[in-house]
Design a protein around this nucleic acid. Structure first.
Lengths: 161, 161
DNA sequence: AAATTCAGTTGTACTATACAACCGGAACAG
DNA sequence: CTGTTCCGGTTGTATAGTACAACTGAATTT
């Protein structure tokens, strides 16, 4: 794919057919992906938006946490999380347990239904990814996964999950 | 990163430290990226949301097109595009020219200001990407760019830009 | 000339979000 | 203790982005 090298003081830069540097291609493709993801985030699953899915996943990982933790972790306003949580509770996917030690805090837990829906959505997403990546050689998958992980580990190498 | 091979009829599968397959890692990292992108899409630039930026970019590429084309290309409702276009026109970033042959159609064009803002946003994004990817070896950038391009070229190898 | 098609706008509704004001329990200072 | 401050969470309000449906006006077809 790279067609030319330009030794110009900023370092060797490969350019593709359209005269783009690799960084520019990454920028363009990430933008395309972001826009598509945004467009489909709401209708990801009849039950679960991308955000709800993420919140549920976090609860599963951590085995329950506070709404404030979710807000901090995902850089969402606490009011936003409050309403999302209220919706998830209304849908009986999570439940709140008052912390007996501190009656201000409500520890959020997945319900059985929540766990079931989460697993179901995860599986349906996994199937979609598998299909999409079906004809990639395993070696490329491993490399791509590593690149993505590296890309996301910035600027906070510890945040998120 | 890959730690084990599992020859089990579904093909050899490498698993990382957390017991994830490469596909699962890709799924997880793409989800993280999508969520972060969604969170920052609105405040990408004081002037331009991700969608506006994309629309302006499309106009620049094509040298003008109809609102309906934008809607079709980006799978947005025509009413949505109509309002976005109205906002961009209000901000004097684009202008409408009535097609003299068909008075139903308005061909949209970037204004000088539109071109300027678009270039400015593109450049500021490019700088951010460059910084983020500053310590990647060029070879990895080229490979990552190719993987992303391949990933996005699905399921419509011709759509988008 | 009437009916149909097409580009675009407008009315309405919904979702996700943020910010600010608030409420009630907890911790702390005196 | 008691009052103040802090903290977790909710609610009021506002905004952006989106879709769907109804409409307008122009072009095309019958």
């Amino acid at each position: 794919m790279p067609a030319a090298e330009r030794p110009d003081g900023t370092g060797a830069v490969f350019r593709g057919a359209a005269g783009e540097t690799a960084v520019e291609t990454i920028q363009r493709e990430m933008t395309i992906f972001a826009r598509r993801a945004r467009a489909s985030a709401g209708r990801m699953h009849p039950e679960l938006s991308l955000v709800s899915y993420t919140l549920l996943g976090h609860l599963e990982e951590r085995g329950g946490c506070r709404a404030t933790d979710l807000a901090a972790h995902y850089a969402l306003d606490k009011s936003t999380v409050s309403r999302q949580v209220a919706a998830l509770e209304r849908a009986a996917l999570i439940e709140r347990r008052l912390d007996p030690d501190d009656h201000r805090v409500q520890v959020l837990h997945l319900t059985g239904a929540g766990r079931r829906i989460l697993a179901q959505v995860t599986e349906s997403r996994r199937a979609a990814f598998r299909e999409r990546l079906a004809d990639w050689p395993e070696e490329d998958l491993v490399r791509f996964a590593a690149y993505l992980t590296r890309y996301n580990d910035w600027p906070r190498p510890d945040e998120d999950a």
